[in-house]
């Protein structure tokens, strides 16, 4: 028994600064397309039901869950994954801050946390602790108890201000 042949459509995305076109089935999730078609395995898939926030990416600068969006919906969008941020030699200030403040243990939630934090700091350069906790409320971490993550975001704000 085979499924009916699925239609495929072309989607053009700006992925981490590069224009990319890919052919997808409409049912393919953006998270799966980023991982499997583009090899961006920094997009972590956790619950796959829109709860944990591990798959958070930035679409046109805003944090969204890539597992709750079909790739076709993102036609023409500007997408940033954690791969866009920095390198081990030259980390983004948010990554440096997570490293300095031990804002991770297992690391599974970290790409989503880092991107959500970056989007917050782009909008609110000097957030209060309450604003940080509110901004991160859609990202679950089962290791750290969040305290070090909040401190990391506070530190990231300092590092970004120092330039």
């Amino acid at each position: 028994m085979s499924e009916p042949k699925a239609e495929k459509v072309a989607v053009t995305l700006n992925v981490n600064g590069a224009e990319r076109t890919v052919t997808v089935e409409p049912r393919w999730l953006l998270s799966d397309v980023l991982r499997q078609e583009f090899g961006l395995t920094g997009v972590h898939i956790g619950c796959e039901h829109g709860v944990c926030g591990a798959c958070t990416i930035l679409v046109d600068g805003e944090p969204v869950r890539s597992c709750l969006q079909f790739a076709v919906q993102a036609e023409g969008a500007r997408i940033e994954t954690v791969e866009a941020l920095g390198t081990p030699e030259e980390m983004d200030p948010v990554q440096t801050a997570f490293w300095e403040k031990h804002g991770l243990q297992c690391g599974y939630c970290t790409p989503g946390m880092v991107l959500t934090a970056k989007a917050l700091l782009d909008r609110v350069p000097n957030p209060t602790e309450a604003e940080i906790r509110h901004a991160l409320s859609g990202n679950l971490c089962r290791c750290t108890g969040y305290q070090f993550i909040v401190e990391a975001v506070e530190r990231a704000a300092e590092l970004r201000a120092e330039g």
């Binding site: 969204v64 869950r65 709750l68 409320s137 859609g138």
Partner: peptide, 9 residues
């Protein structure tokens, strides 16, 4: 509503 990620979509 929901959380920030939900409110953006």
């Amino acid at each position: 509503v929901g959380d920030p990620q939900v409110r953006h979509r």
